[in-house]
Every structure is written in C-alpha cells, then in structure tokens.
Nucleic acid binder design. Structure first.
Lengths: 348, 348
DNA sequence: TTGTACGCGTTATCAT
DNA sequence: ATGATAACGCGTACAA
C-alpha cells in the first residue's frame, strides 16, 4: 500500500532553504527571524502543505493541548457512557467546554473516574494539560489531585478542602430561594422540597438553605414532613412524587432541586391522575434544554449550564497558558424562568 | 516549583537490570524474553510505578490510540457544541462509542467538520487512528476521506459513493413501515408524514418508502397533501404541527421521522388545544431516552442509538487493529415501542 | 541563524 | 536464543 510520506518541519526547512530551528521559530512566533526569512518560511509552509505534528510537539514541550474531563462514576454506573447518556446536564456542560477548547486550539478527552490511581495514569499517559472535574469526590482523592501538578477546575464544590483549586459555581442558595419564593408568591403554603442527600452534597445543602430562607421569610414552617429525599434522577423523582401523594400535608407545590427530578415527578403525578400545575405546582432547577420540550413547560431556575462549561474551560486554559490562579472562584448568575408548571394556589 | 521527574522506560530498565529493549518487549508482549526476565521487569514496573507515555509511543509507532468523531456542522451551527447540546441523539450515540473505546484502551476526540481541509489537518495533527462520521456530506468530501488513509466508519449512509467505507445503519424502511402500520392498525386513515428533505437525505427517503409501503399495502392513498417537510428539529416539528392543523385532510395521525420532531409537534398541538393521543396520534423515530420522560410517553421506533455507537466503535477499532474490512455494512434492528402517544381512531 | 542534543518508546541490527 | 545498542519519529530550545 502506498502511503503518503508525512511532511515534516525538515521538509519545510529544505524547501525554504533555512534551518529547522528557523522554521520552528517562525511557527512559534519567536522573534528571532528577519521579516524576509519569515515570509519565505511561511510561503514554504503554505506551498508544501505542512502541518505541525502535535504528538511530536507534545513530546518536546510536554504540552499536549488536550484537557480532560472527569465524570464521577458511582457503583451503578460503570461506564462514563451511561452518565453522558442519561443526564442531559453533562452533555450541555461538555458542549460549553468543547466550544472554548476549539476556539483556543485544544482538544477535549472525557473519562470516568473509578479509583484515584486511574486519574493520575490518564494524565501521565496523555500528558494532559489540565483537568475539569464534575461531581463530588471523597476528600482523600483531592490529595491525589494536588500532586498531579496540572491545573484543575472543580465545579460546584463547597467543601473546605477544595479551596486550593479553581471552582466554578452558582449561587445555589439564591436560586433555591427565588424558586421557593415564586411558589409562595403564587399563594402556596405547604411547599415540599424534593432533594438528594443534604449531608453529602454541598449543593443540596445550599439549596435547602435557600428553600428554608424563603419559607422563613414568609413565616412558613419548614416541617420535616415537607422534605423528600432520594436519588437525583428521573426514577428518584418518580418515587418522590408517590410519597408526596401519600403525604398528609396537603402539599400544593414542590421545589425540586433538579429538572430531571421534576420530570420524574410530573410523569408520576400524571400517572396518578394529578395534573400539573392545576393540582400541584412544580419548580425545577437547571433549565435543561428539554424543559421547553415538555408540556407543561417546566418553570425552573436557570443556571447557564453551557456557560458553566465555557467558564470552566476558559479558567482552565487561562491557567495553563498564563498561570492565572484566581482561585477565589467564579459565581455564575441564576434566574427564574417561568413556564407552565406553576400556577396560583386554588385555595387562596 | 518542584516537579516530580517522569518515570521512563529507562528507569525501569536500570531498576530491573535489563535493557530498555527488553522492557519494551515485555510491555508489548513480544516473546523474545525468558520468563524469568519478564517477571523481573514486570516487578520493576510495579515497584517504581511506571506508566508508558502514549505520546512517545504514538510518535514511535504512528499510532495514537485515539479516534475522532466528526459531527456535521451546518451554517447555523458554527460550533460542534451546539449540536451536542441540542440534539440528544448525538450524546447517546457518543456514549456508545465512549464505552467501547474505554474498554479497548482508546480515547475519543470530537470535532465538527467545516471544510474538507480541517478534517485532514485534524487527523494529521493528532495522528488519529480512525474516524467516525455522523451525518451526510457532499460527495466531494468523500474523495478527501479516501485519501486520509485511516479507517473510516460512516453512519446511516445510502449513497453510492460511500460504499467503500464501513457503514452502520438500520433498516429505515422497515422502521417507518412498522410505525405507519401501527397507526393503520389503530384505525387511522389520513396519516401524515412529518419529515426532513427527502431528496437530500437517504434516510428520509427510505423512511418515506416505508411509510408509502405500509399505506399502499392497506390500499391507502399517499397524497402529497399528507407529506409535511421541514427542518428535523424541535422548532421544525412545531411548525409542521401548525401546518397539519391548517390542513383540510382531517389528519388523525402523524408519523414523524424523528423523535425530536414529534416533541415539537406535541408541544405545538397542546398549545393549540389539541390533545395527544385523543385528537391526534403521533409516532416518532429513534427512541431517545427522554421519550419516557414526556407525558404522554412517545410511541416510537426504537433504534439502539447507544448500540449504534457501540457497533461503530467496534467496527472501527477492529479495522484499526486487525485490518478487518467487512465493508458490507452492519444493519441494526428496529422495533416498535408503544407508549401513550397513539390511540385508536375515534371515528372507527 | 544554525547545529544538535533532547523528550520517550520502538525496533532493527548487532553481540554474547 | 537473549539481550544490548543505537537510530528513529518530529518538533523544541540552547549553545555556538
């Protein structure tokens, strides 16, 4: 089989009648070359169609122009794939990363993290320039991360021991508060909170705080009977809806800490003959793209998921290229998006 | 800043008291080493925690263990990101690729294709071992693809000039036929087809054929007034639903060639006070994960999108590693999934 | 501006 | 039959 020989920097040098060092300098914008020679080199590159090999460049510079995204895998999800498939949040987020990476000439690799070791191996194997972590990890893993000596961006972490990394977050408390206030404004009093584990997740904790704060400001009691905890997933929402229907609290509205949870709830409520928002109002959190696909469209707290990816990638690449370590963290805005899943409480 | 020195193959050789060649042979399972030496090398690798550098390996072997996914970009979508974000089909598909790639020790890179040139550049830059293309491309681009000299897997192509590549597809005609037949069995007669451009897309053409075939087998007339064409997107479906409501054909059922189209239609129908399936039955195509999130759940033709990714990646990597060129193409099965968006025609 | 050692693993050639 | 030496792949960077 005939194989086209790869065009190398030496071919360019020969063609332009200069040394490889000069060609390299021109390519990398190192000003050691006269304008005239530069022209000649550029012309040669164009004419023979030279394309620098990132692999070789990586080997020489120890810089791959690749960043890695680590997704958390639980026991139930042995493949990254499952996560990507089932949780639209991830694909929107990754889209944001992708768009910045492309602009800045980086490529993106994705993997799941299973044990601490695999992470270091991956970085070493591929000489990744930086990492973006989604999800929360046991504290011990962060020791490992620190020793990786590449910039790391974390998303939505509140833990003390994560403060030495970049962090992209939103005001979860505020978001939860405006969601809950919206329901209160509509005349609801018995407002349930559908959430994941509050102790284990800082995000859930903050959203609980926001819920609580809104309730208390309106002198509403935060009863334990109003808090429904379970998996943050479609199925989890489905189950919580059942519990809510069985509750004796006469619940007329629910704030769900994630859209995906709200979807499961709406589906279950309809199966039980309840309609949204006539019987129960529901507010979600995230504003996934598919919120508007549903009927009723989901009222939710919009956090720019795509923008979060953009911020994460920008922060990471800024650190990689300029060593910018503005570790204070970035807080992205939230905003209430009112659609059709919330209505005035009929009893008021 | 203190930086841990990278552990190289030479460190292993020194530690084990052998040559680098021997270490390399052991790593790559080349049987030129006595069992005893092999043991010693393996032990050394473990003890000092050696991890081969894929970058260096790639440079030496011209094999990166990375594959690329090319997504089609139209004028409106200047970033890959937008596609990924808006079309759940892509993320499910990519999940399938990811899962196989991980198992077989490959990493996956994703990009959008804008001009022919960018594709070759990307392959050269990163020394990609193979490519998976989604979507349809102008014929001229395939000349380019051929000259890339890496294995290529195409998805859902019917064009003559694509036969020299691997192709993963489904039986689109059959899928469309069972969808349409399902509606006919429910007593519907005036069944609309909601589709993208039939001339430009082989997939749409085949699905049209299936629709036609089902209709004709039941002696139903395929009237031009029943065919609604537009963009295959949520918005496209939204618009088509409006046209259908304005139609004089007394349409009681619709077969939409994509779930996303069906979602847009259902949303629009509800906005116009029509209910699904009471007033109009709708069948989609794809069985996106979110079909079951909606209410009513969408009756649709299931094609294993995830499995399609799996098949694509397996085929590609088999070719890369064993040169398997079973270019006949792979046809994955389709199956009708009945949910709540279809019901018996009230008029019958 | 240029020559060249270097990064790290692979493999062909040579030595024992 | 085993194993060691060294050239190689390609771009970078420092000394000359």
């Amino acid at each position: 089989m005939y194989m086209k020989k790869k065009i190398t920097i030496r071919d360019v040098a020969k063609y332009a009648g200069v040394s490889v060092a000069t060609v390299s300098n021109v390519i990398n914008d190192i000003n050691k070359t006269s304008e005239e020679t530069k022209e000649r080199v550029l012309k040669a590159i164009k004419e023979i169609g030279y394309q620098p090999d990132f692999t070789a460049r990586c080997l020489a510079k120890r810089k791959s122009n690749m960043i890695g995204i680590m997704l958390p895998l639980t026991e139930k999800e042995h493949f990254t794939s499952i996560l990507l498939k089932d949780n639209p949040f991830y694909s929107e987020f990754i889209s944001g990363i992708e768009s910045i990476a492309r602009q800045r000439d980086y490529d993106v690799l994705i993997t799941g993290i299973e044990q601490g070791q695999s992470c270091r191996d991956w970085v070493n194997k591929r000489n990744l320039d930086g990492l973006i972590f989604l999800g929360i990890y046991p504290e011990v893993l962060f020791q490992e991360f620190k020793s990786l000596d590449v910039p790391i961006v974390l998303i939505d972490t509140y833990e003390e021991y994560t403060s030495q990394f970049h962090n992209i977050a939103i005001d979860d408390t505020l978001g939860a508060k405006i969601a809950t206030s919206h329901l209160i404004d509509l005349g609801h009093r018995n407002i349930a909170l559908a959430t994941g584990n509050i102790e284990k997740s800082g995000v859930n904790k903050k959203r609980f705080d926001g819920y609580k704060s809104a309730m208390e400001e309106s002198s509403l009691c935060v009863k334990e009977e109003l808090i429904f905890t379970g998996l943050v997933s479609f199925e989890g929402g489905h189950n919580m809806a059942k519990s809510i229907l069985e509750s004796k609290e006469d619940i007329t509205a629910v704030f769900a800490v994630a859209d995906i949870l709200a979807f499961g709830m709406i589906k279950a409520l309809k199966e039980f003959g309840k309609s949204v928002p006539e019987d129960i109002s529901i507010v979600g959190f995230d504003d996934l793209k598919m919120c508007e696909y549903l009927s009723p469209g989901l009222t939710t707290v919009r956090q720019g998921i795509f923008d979060k990816g953009v911020a994460a990638a920008s922060t990471l690449i800024d650190d990689i290229e300029f060593g910018e370590r503005k570790n204070e963290g970035i807080i992205l805005p939230v905003e209430l998006v009112v659609r059709e899943s919330t209505a005035r409480n009929k009893a008021t």
